[in-house]
Design a protein around this nucleic acid. Structure first.
Lengths: 348, 348
DNA sequence: TTGTACGCGTTATCAA
DNA sequence: TTGATAACGCGTACAA
């Protein structure tokens, strides 16, 4: 902008203080004066410079969101919730995308310093205690979504329960040899999502009195290719599983691809259940554990805004549950197909 | 931050000017002095306040991207390219998502005023001449991607050619009754993408000497539901088409869903070709016209950065082509199936 | 080579 | 109710 508050003040024949008061709807301005100033503002198309404003207020009106691979469906569905409430509040959404751990660490150490955002929403990224306390020290408000820290308010879904239910469901269909493709993050991220899902898997297996077969557990990137590669391993085992639980829908889609390549019929010979409940899973008729991503995003950002207005809130843990969506990639185990059919062929 | 440039100067026993020179690598500082200042900076963990800096430089180091429905696959694939080059340059990515025309217009008028971004990348949104000149007046650098304005450098794909080739391909397979599901934007956007695709459609039809049947052209939202609804119309026609060209992959996916509901076999009874070439199209084995989304995003942002460094460049038009990816949702027309089979049933 | 002082556009304080 | 003026933290002429 070229016209400043001084121009307005001069032309309106008042002091800059008065103009400022008018802009900010501060009381103590005679209506007639306000009118006059307002008309000059309109005439000059004057807009206060946001940078100069934040120079004093120490606020930018922007919210940072730090996420891994922000273009993945699971993430974008969360972002949808985040964006809509942010736009409603006329706040900017700035994205910090991280694709490896060094990048993540850099953001975590630098973001508190450069005060370019009023608050930070961390999605699906683990934050160490040291990091969370550096946030505190810098006075940066932070909320976690799909991640947990005892020191920061966190919005999570119960991944143990989710995985447990997924496997339980497979068990209820009669499956006994159940493969698990867990997720890992490129680089050295340590997602506790993955750990929790593994725990849920074990718990369900244990309850059913089933032994744990290490070869049935694979770890892969949280995407199609990762799931596909892991599934290739699982499905070319001597005794391959009759069902596979994938830690994300994208990985489950990879499983479907692998099965297709190997001419294994789903769900006839192989049951597949995913996790996340992303939009495309519906089209693929993929059975999955649905996470309320949109709501998590909305709630997370709402909490963050609240914290920015009223700092010094005690951290809170908000839990959601994953819910089973039964579709057509799972079916009851039948002994004459799948594993045993494969065994029969082997026996030739 | 609490420590300022003054603290550093005082502790290092120099003037603020010297500290500033050190920070900005300005020449004319004795090495020993530089050392001393640097060590104090490190000791105090001092970081210059970006807000105060932009107060002087008039730059924020942020790039705005204004997009419709930024969570759609076609858009996110472009954003992937945008984000990666931006992160590389240590610039922030701020997203302005628009879901209707009034929101778009508000951003277009306000963004030039509030100088919160150094440049603006407009994706898939039409910008009126008046808007483009307001950008100029405000000195805001702008580049268009998947959109065109004679006054702004634009990165586009030739949609006429793309649609033409798609229909041409269907024609080469022997199809004569070809349905077209074009896109429209919620609200009152007027995407020229849609117009161009319609032109390409007509051109191919005309060359083949085929008449234009208005009932075979539908317009829908650029998403799954839109495509599905439009396909339901097309596929329940007395004489339904033997092939459908959808203006986006998401719409094509909707067509697949509709066909599934109507028990119409793809590609046996119906050929489907999409547009965009989003990742999921591969899994679905959808034949499609692929757009180089990633490259478009990368190139667009590269141009924008260049313009910010060197303003007053003449606007340039950069064209890409869409390329056919043949997969399995299309097959040669066979008279004994599809339309005629349907007719036969009707005849009973 | 280095320090001082001013300006960037606001808001806030304090007399008047 | 108002206007002048001091911050806010930094970059940069200009003087030393």
């Amino acid at each position: 902008m070229f016209t400043t508050i001084h121009d307005v003040a001069r032309i309106a024949g008042v002091g800059v203080g008065t103009v400022s008061r008018v802009i900010n709807n501060s009381p103590g301005v005679r209506p007639s004066t306000r009118e006059k100033v307002l008309s000059v503002i309109a005439e000059l198309h004057y807009k206060p410079d946001p940078i100069a404003r934040s120079m004093i207020s120490k606020r930018t009106g922007a919210i940072g969101v730090i996420v891994p691979f922000f273009t993945r469906p699971f993430i974008t569905e969360m972002l949808k919730g985040v964006e809509s409430t942010l736009a409603h509040l006329e706040k900017e959404l700035v994205i910090y995308n991280v694709e490896n751990d060094s990048q993540r660490d850099r953001y975590f150490t630098e973001l508190p310093m450069r005060r370019k955002v009023d608050g930070l929403l961390v999605i699906s990224l683990p934050v160490a205690d040291a990091v969370s306390s550096s946030f505190k020290d810098a006075g940066l408000q932070v909320v976690l979504v799909d991640a947990y820290s005892p020191y920061l308010t966190s919005v999570v879904v119960d991944n143990i329960q989710g995985a447990y239910e997924a496997v339980k469901y497979l068990l209820s269909l009669g499956h006994r040899r159940i493969g698990f493709i867990n997720g890992i993050i490129e680089g050295n991220f340590k997602f506790n999502q993955a750990n929790d899902r593994l725990i849920g898997f074990h718990r369900a297996l244990g309850e059913a009195g089933l032994p744990f077969s290490p070869e049935l557990v694979q770890t892969s990137a949280w995407d199609r290719d990762g799931g596909k590669a892991a599934a290739m391993q699982l499905l070319t085992l001597k005794k391959r599983p009759s069902a596979i639980f994938a830690a994300s829908d994208m990985q489950a889609i990879g499983v479907i691809e692998a099965a297709r390549m190997l001419h294994i019929d789903i769900p006839g010979e192989l049951s597949v259940i995913g996790y996340d409940g992303i939009e495309i899973s519906e089209l693929l008729e993929l059975t999955t554990m649905h996470q309320p991503t949109l709501q998590m995003g909305e709630l997370g950002i709402a909490r963050l805004i609240e914290q920015i207005e009223h700092p010094d809130q005690a951290p809170e843990l908000i839990r959601f549950n994953a819910t089973l969506i039964e579709r057509r990639t799972t079916s009851p185990y039948s002994a004459d197909k799948g594993t045993d059919a494969f065994d029969a062929i082997e026996a030739l």
